[in-house]
Computed example of a mutant assay.
Amino acid sequence: MPVVNYNNNIRTSQRPGISLEESQDFYKTWAETYDKDTTNSNYNGPAATANLVLKLFEGKTDGVRILDVAAGTGMSGEALQKIGFCSLDALEPSEEMLLLAKEKNVYGRLIQDFLGTNRLDIVDGEYDATVMVGGMVEGHVGCDCLEELIRVVKPGTYLSTMPVVNYHGNIRDVQRPGISLTESQNFYKTWAADYDKDTTDSNYNGPAATANLVLKLFEGKTDGVRILDVAAGTGMSGEALYKVGFRSMDALEPSEDMLLLAKEKNVYGRLIQDFLGTNRLDIVDGEYDATVMVGGMVEGHVKCDCLEELIRVVKPGGFVVICMREVNLRKVPEYHKLEPRMAALKSKGCWEPVSRVVFSNYCEGEEGIIFVYRVC
């Protein structure tokens, strides 16, 4: 999976400690290719927010006045106009971005200003809604903007940022800092039935991205390739692998409730209910051509001490494939140890690195990373 321009530019414009002035200077160079880069990165924030705003107004768009905050080049304005909203103004600090927004012909008033504690040149209660998509990132809009967002909206109407869908609420609960493995498994008892719907609604692309990469590893040949889907959940990765042609797959998953749903997908042979860690699984050495784990490395789930077992059950020359949120390498203390442990296993002659791929839109626009190692 390629690392597109959007990821490089977004890292630069949001680097830790960047000032508001520095971020705005960066947009002078990025404005011209911003739309292309974000489109290539499957940026769904504007469309998702526009659809939610339409629901807030029960499908009625006539006379609804909206202020698009941190409007950028006008992508959110386009999304709102596409579903029927026609009375839109734009607030954006970057002159270069605002000029491009003007060309889209979706806005009435174009306001070049920063949003913060300053009072905007807008009267109280001017709008039926203020909408901000993507403005709350490092070095951009701060939390002190909320009072001003409220001031310019009339009583009884709406302030909307990028919507937080059900998936995020559940994922926060199941990955909260300090959660134990037992607690996370108990949570899946209540979430299992809605898991597929919630993750699909959140544009969860980890399984598909990983399946396509695995197909390339085997040069498009799927016959006789045996794969163990690790932390299989409800079988979304199994479905993705099946879709690209793999037919000989087993599933390893600790949650009985999730595994029962995986069984219904009819893509697996053996279903193994067990935790992955330092324990020895009921699998013989070298049983598989590949072990594939997508989304298992999150807070309170699979730990770094699982790597040796992932290697043991793969035949020499086979692959270990791990896909996860890229941010977890920095955000979750357990995974600070992951790449050093991978390097140590390489030094011991257990495996050799094949690729380390960062890709966009793993889930809800966040980056994913896929590690591939060949077993020695």
Rank of each mutant, 00 (worst) to 15 (best):
P155R: 10
N7R: 12
A50C: 10
P93R: 02
V225N: 02
G220P: 07
D124G: 06
V313E: 01
A251M: 10
P155W: 04
G156Q: 09
T291W: 09
Q24C: 12
L228T: 00
A31Q: 06
K102V: 08
N166C: 14
H140C: 05
E138D: 07
C306S: 12
Y167H: 12
E309M: 03
N51D: 15
L115P: 00
N8S: 10
Y204S: 04
E326Y: 15
E92G: 00
S76Q: 05
E58W: 06
V332R: 05
G84V: 04
P16Y: 09
T61G: 05
C304D: 10
G142Q: 09
S184W: 03
Y127E: 01
H336I: 05
A211W: 02
A129R: 01
R11P: 00
G125N: 14
L100D: 03
D229S: 01
G277Q: 09
L181W: 10
S160P: 01
C376W: 11
L159E: 07
H336Q: 11
L88K: 11
A79C: 11
G317Y: 05
F359E: 01
G368Y: 06
Q185K: 14
M132S: 15
M258E: 05
V358E: 15
A211M: 07
M342P: 09
F57I: 04
W351T: 02
G142L: 07
D274K: 13
S87N: 14
E32C: 06
G116E: 03
S23A: 15
D89C: 05
M97I: 08
Y167G: 08
G235Y: 02
P316G: 08
G277R: 12
C350G: 07
V313F: 02
Y127H: 02
I370V: 15
D194H: 14
P46E: 09
E366V: 07
M324S: 11
I179D: 04
F275I: 11
R374G: 03
L261T: 08
V332I: 15
D194M: 13
V354N: 01
V53Q: 03
Q185P: 05
T130S: 13
Y373F: 14
V131E: 01
